[in-house]
């Protein structure tokens, strides 16, 4: 589904990603871990199409098409979803109007009829239960005044509404207490399907107790320096990142 080959990315002439290669197939859950500043969020943003980065080398293929060529909204329509580490507050844009516009743009792209207001509301109510948000977002502006936990739940609610093929969750666990973490993880798990894939970006192993990954990759200094199964995450939890840093230093 996703083929990243030797991807190099800079910002302000500073190289952040220094040759990343990664294959993600449908049905798989990949965890990308690594210390702060290793380039995890840059990778997520580049995949979603944030244009502040300069891609200096490499290719990214998504469902057989060049991904880097596509505008962010086209990527979303093609099934890519980014769960933001820091969801953006947008005062004055009503949450439900925003979601309905997004759902209908994506439906139109997929050759489906736009949802009527009534059908949209029914779908929305159903998907809200996944992250247990009730009517808390109704009548509010996008993320405005939301607590940290509400913002993260909102990301998963949006994911549930947009039904992506490839979900990239950037530090979805940061700032969540354990109960909220369970709710969010539970939401993600319920949305897993054999034809979809998920990339979970996280600093801690904690989230991976609830979202079990098939593969774990360690990103350090702009490169994937280690890949393995879910046991790699446990090892990182026990030994910390110093072990990786040391190993890399020795190389």
């Amino acid at each position: 589904m996703l083929k990243i080959k030797d991807l190099r990315v800079s910002i302000n002439n500073k190289e952040i990603l220094k040759g990343i290669s990664l294959n993600v197939n449908k049905g798989e859950v990949h965890a990308i871990m690594g210390p702060n500043g290793s380039g995890k969020s840059t990778l997520a943003s580049v995949l979603a199409g944030r244009d502040i980065y300069e891609i200096t080398a490499g290719t990214v293929e998504y469902n057989g098409k060049d991904l880097l060529d596509q505008a962010p909204d086209v990527r979303a329509k093609e099934g890519i979803f980014l769960g933001f580490q820091y969801p953006v507050e947008i005062p004055g844009v009503n949450m439900m109007t925003f979601m309905r516009t997004a759902v209908n743009e994506i439906r139109t792209h997929r050759g489906l009829e736009p949802l009527s207001a009534k059908a949209f509301l029914a779908l929305s109510e159903e998907r809200k239960t996944l992250v247990e948000i009730g009517s808390r977002f109704d009548g509010r502006s996008v993320n405005e005044g939301f607590s940290g936990g509400e913002k993260k739940r909102n990301e998963i609610y949006q994911m549930a509404m947009l039904e992506p093929t490839l979900a990239i969750l950037d530090e979805t666990d940061s700032g969540l207490d354990i109960d909220a973490l369970k709710v969010v993880a539970n939401g993600v798990n319920k949305l897993r399907k054999p034809e979809n894939a998920t990339i979970v970006i996280t600093h801690y192993q904690r989230l991976l107790d609830f979202i079990i990954p098939d593969f774990v990759h360690v990103l350090y200094n702009g490169k994937i320096v280690k890949s393995g199964g879910k046991e790699l995450a446990l090892e990182l939890e026990i030994r910390g990142y110093d072990w990786i840093k040391k190993e890399q230093g020795e190389n």
């Binding site: 909204d73 980014l82 933001f84 743009e105 994506i106 792209h109």
Partner: peptide
């Protein structure tokens, strides 16, 4: 706000 713009576009809303 370019971040807000990106957020909206990342949900499939055209520029």
């Amino acid at each position: 706000d370019t971040e807000a713009l990106f957020y909206l576009r990342s949900r499939g809303i055209n520029e």
